[in-house]
């Protein structure tokens, strides 16, 4: 279980970093999405891995799993979802303005700035 989650986080992060380094807006956005999946999984695991336990304490339950990390993950998901929407719109705008989907800025377009 630990090995599965840890290697999941690792593979997602590695894939995300590789995609971000491609320098094209589509792969950068996908890379950022993969990174945010990795971090969501990591936050979830930071409350310790427990199988089949409820996040709520009642009189009949014997054990519980940390509910706070689930709330943190929820917040992180909402924020990364919103941010992905913003960068998609901005990348689309930049693509329509420049006709190129490169994220790096070449010297020609610096025009004296």
């Amino acid at each position: 279980m630990e090995l599965l989650v840890a290697s999941g986080v690792g593979v997602l992060t590695a894939g995300g970093v590789w995609l971000i380094l491609q320098g094209r807006s589509f792969s950068v956005i996908l890379g950022l999405a993969l990174l945010s999946y990795a971090v969501n999984l990591f936050i979830f695991a930071s409350g310790r891995l427990a199988i089949g336990l409820p996040p709520i304490l009642t009189k009949s339950t014997t054990g519980y799993t940390d509910p706070l990390t689930q709330a943190l993950v929820l917040t992180a998901i909402v924020i990364s979802f919103g941010m992905t929407a913003v960068i998609v719109v901005m990348a689309l705008g930049a693509f329509l303005e420049t006709g190129s989907d490169r994220v790096d800025i070449d010297d020609d377009s610096r025009d004296g700035l």
């Binding site: 807006s25 901005m90 303005e97 420049t98 790096d104 800025i105 377009s109 610096r110 025009d111």
Partner: peptide, 10 residues
Amino acid sequence: GRARLQAGVQ
């Protein structure tokens, strides 16, 4: 504007 959007994405 073009330059601003490009820098914005970065």
